[in-house]
């Protein structure tokens, strides 16, 4: 009986110590993961800022005109037209908008 009591006591002490050690171990793990999360969040934010800066209209216009040789359409060269999905015009149809660059408009607007 005495032996059993000593054994149970030792087991309880072991469980208590094991639990404390494991808590510390998990604590370190959590801290490491939190640190990783912070690093990844910083990286994500940095990429967001970079993406946003790279997609700035100022920059796109500069790249388009200086590197790709693109030019803005002249006045009247862009025409927004509306077409309907089926032949018969109906006020309930959702207009489909198509943008085209005008190459030639014979008798067009001046």
């Amino acid at each position: 009986m005495k032996m059993l009591a000593v054994f149970v006591g030792l087991c309880l002490v072991f469980v208590f110590v094991w639990e404390r050690v494991d808590m510390v171990r998990v604590g370190y793990q959590i801290e490491r993961l939190k640190h990783d999360k912070v690093v990844l969040e910083r990286e994500r934010d940095e990429l967001r800022v970079k993406f946003s800066a790279l997609s700035a209209p100022d920059r796109i216009a500069t790249v388009a005109s200086e590197q790709l040789g693109m030019v803005l359409p002249q006045q009247g060269q862009v025409i927004v037209i509306q077409s309907r999905s089926n032949g018969a015009p109906s006020p309930r149809d959702t207009p489909v908008e198509v943008r085209i660059a005008k190459n030639d408009l014979s008798g067009g607007r001046k």
Binding site: V80, Q82, E97, I100, K102, N103, L105, G107, G108
Partner: peptide, 16 residues
């Protein structure tokens, strides 16, 4: 143009 507002003036398109 950017907002997709269409002109109210009829135009003739010539496909080249």
């Amino acid at each position: 143009n950017y907002l997709g507002v269409s002109s109210n003036e009829p135009v003739k398109l010539v496909m080249m």
